[in-house]
Design a protein around this nucleic acid. Structure first.
Length: 234
DNA sequence: GCGACAG
DNA sequence: ATCTTGTCGC
């Protein structure tokens, strides 16, 4: 299914689709050496259906910005916990297709398999594009875990019914942990190792941190809803 | 019925 | 997520 059709799905249909996709998830070691990594994020005005998507690509592990891509698209799919992908993936997919070269790994702001149906936005986007993806969330959606020690890079496993689905990572002391889970085509430990190398003094790893700054910047620059000027509904 | 609930 | 200044703590 093309993501441009997501906004017409009902929540029940979206859940059925997640259950269909989940059988294709691959959590395994990424063999190819990682030379580039990118972060993706979304921003929007509270009373508008316009989404501002952005992707920032870096060389790895030196983390120098080498490319960016943005897109503005419409959605009528509301935010529903557990169905975030149906609201944000279409805009991100447009920004992804506008990248002249794809990164070896993509980090998304949200969960990977640390999801009730193992279908967080990072997993969903990985299945859609085939790209290795990692979910880096600022808060927990699913899974039980113990608070990690207040020590840089302290880890605490996230479980669901005895299954390891992610890691709560202390990316910065005296700050709440971030929740890392693989999206697709990468392992859990590899996801955590990669995210650790992307921490540069802030709680949020550089890929999604820079993507967040970028999408907020273009949202402010575009001002209020410029739907007509952009000709999105011709 | 009650509590939880990515962005 | 977004709306928003100052302010408490390391």
């Amino acid at each position: 299914m093309d993501p441009s059709g997501y906004e017409h799905l009902t929540p029940a249909e979206a859940i059925n689709y997640q259950n269909e996709l989940r059988s294709r998830i691959q959590i395994r070691e990424l063999q190819k050496p990682i030379k580039t990594i990118a972060g993706a994020d979304i921003s929007f005005n509270k009373n508008s259906e316009l989404l501002y998507a952005g992707i920032v690509m870096f060389s790895y592990p030196d983390m120098q910005v080498i490319a960016t891509s943005t897109a503005i698209s419409h959605t009528s799919f509301p935010y529903i916990s557990g169905l975030l992908a149906f609201r944000e993936v279409p805009a991100l997919f447009t920004a992804w297709n506008n990248l002249y070269a794809k990164p070896d790994v993509l980090v998304l702001d949200g969960q990977g398999i640390a999801h009730e149906r193992r279908m967080g936005i990072a997993t969903h986007f990985g299945l859609l594009t085939g790209a290795p993806t990692i979910g880096s969330a600022k808060s927990r959606l699913y899974g039980r875990y113990e608070e990690p020690a207040d020590k840089i890079f302290a880890e605490s496993p996230m479980h669901d019914k005895g299954e390891l689905i992610g890691i709560a990572l202390r990316s910065k002391e005296h700050c709440n942990p971030i929740y890392i889970s693989p999206g697709h085509n990468i392992s859990i430990q590899q996801s955590v190792d990669v995210i650790k190398k992307c921490i540069r003094g802030y709680r949020i790893p550089e890929p999604t941190r820079q993507a967040h700054l970028l999408v907020n910047k273009i949202r402010i620059e575009n001002g209020e809803d410029k739907t007509k000027q952009l000709g999105l509904f011709d």
